[in-house]
Amino acid sequence: MRSEVPEVLAGTALRRGDLLRRGVTDSRLRSRAVRRPFRGVHADAGVEPGVLRRIGDVVPLLPPGGVVGGWAAAWLHGARWFDGRCGGQELPVLVCLPAAGRMRPRPGVRVLRSELRDDDVTEVAGVPVTSAVRTGLDLARLSDVPRRGVVAVDALWAAGATTGPAVLAHLEERPRLRGAPVARAAAGLAVPGVRSPKETELRMLWVFDAGLPIPLVNHRLVDLAGRHLGTPDLLDEEAGLVGEFDGGDHLALEVSTVDHVRQEGLERHGLVVARFTSVDVRPAHVRRTVWRLRDARTRGLARVGPRSWRVVP
Rank of each mutant, 00 (worst) to 15 (best):
H219F: 14
R176A: 11
G69S: 15
L212P: 03
A296R: 12
H170V: 03
V272M: 13
D249G: 03
V242K: 01
S31C: 13
G211Y: 06
L137I: 09
L202C: 07
L266Q: 00
R174D: 13
V286G: 01
D154V: 05
D280A: 10
L266M: 12
R21M: 11
E173S: 13
L221T: 09
D18Y: 02
R28N: 13
A152I: 02
A152P: 03
L116S: 11
G160C: 04
V93L: 10
T130A: 11
V290Y: 07
V5F: 02
I55L: 05
L229W: 11
T277N: 04
P92L: 01
L293V: 14
H42R: 09
E238D: 13
V258C: 06
P63G: 08
H219K: 14
A252H: 08
H260L: 15
R294D: 12
Q263G: 06
F245P: 01
L229H: 10
L19K: 03
A210L: 14
A169R: 15
V145Q: 10
D233I: 00
V24A: 01
S143Q: 10
V129N: 05
W206K: 08
E123D: 07
A225V: 15
E201T: 11
V95P: 00
G193H: 07
L29I: 11
V273L: 03
S131C: 05
R110S: 12
V24F: 01
D154W: 02
